[in-house]
Write a protein that binds this DNA or RNA. Structure first.
Lengths: 224, 224
DNA sequence: GCAAAAGTGTTGTGTCTACACCCATGT
DNA sequence: ACATGGGTGTAGACACAACACTTTTGC
């Protein structure tokens, strides 16, 4: 079967979409959405189908495989293999979800069915790691945003404060962001209007390729 | 089913263990070792069992899950899910393998059955990435080695030259290596004897935790 | 003018590459 | 002595964090 860890920053907090089980085992407790495969279906197709059917989530900005769980003890009833996926939803969307489905902060989860808590935490770890060395921020952010707004998204996902100053410089140096030329007018409290940025790419790219032990040769020239 | 990408540096070249198929489809062509699960078996148990049974490889220094393949077209006969694992064998071992099994350089693979070529390359990518930001080198190296020997292993795995000078400094600064106090006597051509080192840990550890966007606060003190 | 929010200048630090130089051994 | 291979010293490039300062707005 396939399972989806769908994450979104909502109200400034990283949240995961959970589904309340209607049947034993773990009747009534929260679990990850997902379900069985149908014949000749890809795992990715399967999780997309289950997310669209059961929880009406279609606007995934990113989807990647996490891991496959196979411990014979993970389900009390039967031996069950499950492949978990990480899905991300941009921050301004509010997909309509059925009544048995809701968002929960990843800090402060209720008791989850099966081994789902560990899977949620693994998904968050994957997100945190990739925010550091890829452009994955595109999947959390709306189409256009100010640096402050983006800083809040990164802070919620990473779980610690992020400096807007340095975030801007890192992402611009890596050419992950580009300015739109437009400005966001300030709120009623005043303040300088913020410049609006967007991600240059909406697909995953590694932006910090070689941590160390990179190939010999002259320093790579920054893209002109 | 489970599949294993077993890699080892042999004769200074990164090689993968392949198994020659005896049955259709792809009769006679090379493929990754592996096979079906038996009930109540973990995927990891399964791949270890198949590697031990069929190819007599028991001395894996590292084993981790790569990904699960599910394309309905990947096997011409039937719809087949396969979970691929990356296994590593230290460089000085020469496990006894049956006659239908052999090592092949990853640069210069024969035509492989199914989608196995892509899986091998994915395994190599995983290895290359983790050599940069973890202590995974322990899984390629013998118990003790000189920096030159280790340099050759890294160069074979990474596919480019590596400077022994800098490799030593990086791995010592990160406290991944430690000296043994012993020396390797020089060969017949003479030369200064090389100091012998070993990896401090034989289990995977991240040694370059935050590429960027690390939490605020005073600089982490290097371990005294 | 003053508060609020955004953005820039600048300094310091740590980590890495590159390369010159020195050290220990065999013949 | 000299060739061979191992190891250290050091300088420069770079990316980043931190923080002070400036800019632009509302009131």
């Amino acid at each position: 079967m396939s399972l989806g860890v769908v994450l979104q920053v909502r109200d400034g907090v990283l949240q995961v979409l959970l589904w309340q089980r209607a049947r034993a085992p773990f009747e009534g407790s929260w679990s990850l959405p997902g379900g069985y495969l149908v014949p000749d279906e890809t795992l990715e197709t399967s999780i997309r189908r289950h997310l669209a059917d059961k929880v009406d989530v279609r606007e995934l900005s990113h989807l990647e495989q996490l891991e496959t769980l196979s411990d014979p003890q993970r389900s009390p009833q039967e031996w069950q293999l499950a492949t978990a996926y990480l899905g991300l939803v941009p921050s301004e969307l509010d997909p309509r979800v059925p009544s048995d489905t809701d968002w929960h902060p990843v800090d402060g989860l209720p008791a989850l069915a099966f081994d789902h808590e560990a899977i949620v935490l693994a998904g968050r770890e994957r997100l945190r790691a990739k925010l550091s060395y890829t452009n994955l921020g595109f999947a959390l952010a709306p189409a256009e945003f100010t640096i402050s707004e983006l800083r809040d998204l990164y802070a919620a996902a990473l779980g610690h404060d992020v400096s807007a100053t340095n975030l801007q410089r890192v992402l611009l140096r890596r050419r992950v962001l580009e300015g739109t030329g437009r400005l966001r007018p300030p709120g009623p409290a005043g303040g300088r209007p913020g410049a609006l940025f967007r991600f240059r790419k909406q697909t995953l790219e590694i932006t910090d390729q070689f941590a160390v032990l990179r190939p010999p040769g002259p320093a790579r020239v920054p893209v002109a």
